[in-house]
Simulated scan of single mutants.
Amino acid sequence: MKARQIVEEMDSYVPGRSQDEIAQDFGLKKEDIIKLGSNENPWGPSPKALKAIEEEMSAINRYPESQLHELVEEIAKYSDVDTSQVIVGGDGADEIIDVLAKTFIDNGDEFIVPLPSYMYYEYLLKQYGAKPVYARWDLDENRLDVDSIYEKISPKTKMIFLCSPNNPTGTLIEKETLREIASKNPEILIVIDEAYFEYSEVTNKDLIDEFDNIFIIRTMSKVLGLAGMRIGYGLACSQIIEYMHRIKPVFSLTRLSFVAALNTFRDSEYIESSIKRGIESRQYLYDEVSKIDGLYVFPSKSNFMLIRVKDTGFTASELAHELMKRGVIVRDCTSFKGLDEYWIRISICTLEEDERFIEILKEVLS
């Protein structure tokens, strides 16, 4: 059976390595592995979410909620928007991106992504016949090259993806820059990925009241500690949300994901603690990595940071392999378009794990 042509041409998405994989490959104990490769919350989920999951277990023979009214209300309150401006999806933010594509992309459309950035946008939209066009992040200045966006816009441009803080650079895009791009291109959907906005303590959600061509992507996989439950949500003007609800799968959120999400948003103490500890861990890692000869680490407004390793004598792949042998998972960024073979990304861990990582990193580099 021959697959569609686009499927034949596509490469598979390359995710970060799991603890189970590393434990098996290197003969290590899973519980001893330090995972700095997937930008997760290392302190676990909200206790209220765990309790709600346990209480809901006996009901998994029933279909989940379809309208998600309670959850939409909690997200609207958390985001300070109207309920008509919220859409919720399963499979993390990935389903939200997929529904965006199914709602607005026609075969032959183009979308712009500045490189390097999150590559899953491309992976999903290409399936619907859209063509990626690449703008750029200025790695020397650690900022978005705005002119490169304007240079790539054509009559076929349907969307522009702007990740803020950007993955993997950790860079914020100035709100005025986003406002300018949206106002100059009213027929193009400006998709702002705020997966890590809590760590930056900056949001662009107020722009959805100014512009009907801005869509904000968010996830519960980072600060909110529910990566394994796969919950994402989007914020936009009510017309965009209504269009997307025509396409979105009805039962995309499981019963357990629903109650986990609902009770996490109701646990403000947990959220505040996760943000505070995440920022503390980020600062510790930045300070300590910056002291190591041969490494250059980007300042970050997220829960991860990008590190250039070229002056160590290792490639990213070689360094990642040496660290994995010692039970540390980092992200080899060689697969990120726009980066060469000398970049790794690390994400926050507990301070105890951070300290162990720094010791192991120094050992490998020495």
Rank of each mutant, 00 (worst) to 15 (best):
I217R: 02
Y123E: 05
V7M: 11
I231G: 04
S238A: 10
L253K: 00
L339M: 09
G44D: 12
M229D: 08
T312V: 09
E74N: 06
L351T: 13
E353L: 05
N61D: 15
E8F: 11
H245C: 01
T334K: 15
M57Q: 13
F104L: 11
E355F: 01
Q239G: 12
L172D: 05
P114D: 02
M10E: 12
N142F: 10
G327S: 07
R17L: 14
I181V: 12
E352R: 12
I240A: 08
L319G: 07
S12M: 11
E180N: 14
D106H: 14
I192G: 06
K337L: 14
F314E: 04
S66T: 14
A130D: 02
E21A: 00
E359A: 13
F161T: 08
F265L: 15
R246F: 01
E355N: 07
L178C: 05
V364L: 11
Q5N: 04
N107E: 15
S302W: 00
L256P: 08
R143E: 07
R4D: 01
N142E: 12
L224C: 00
L115C: 06
M1R: 06
A260Q: 08
A59Y: 14
E73H: 10
I240S: 04
I34W: 02
R326M: 04
I360M: 06
H245G: 01
E280H: 05
N213P: 10
L162C: 11
S79M: 15
A135D: 04
C333Y: 02
Q19D: 14
H321E: 15
E355C: 05
I181E: 08
L339N: 10
D340G: 03
K29F: 09
L256N: 03
G294T: 07
K222N: 12
D32N: 13
S84W: 00
E176T: 12
M159F: 11
A316N: 07
P45M: 05
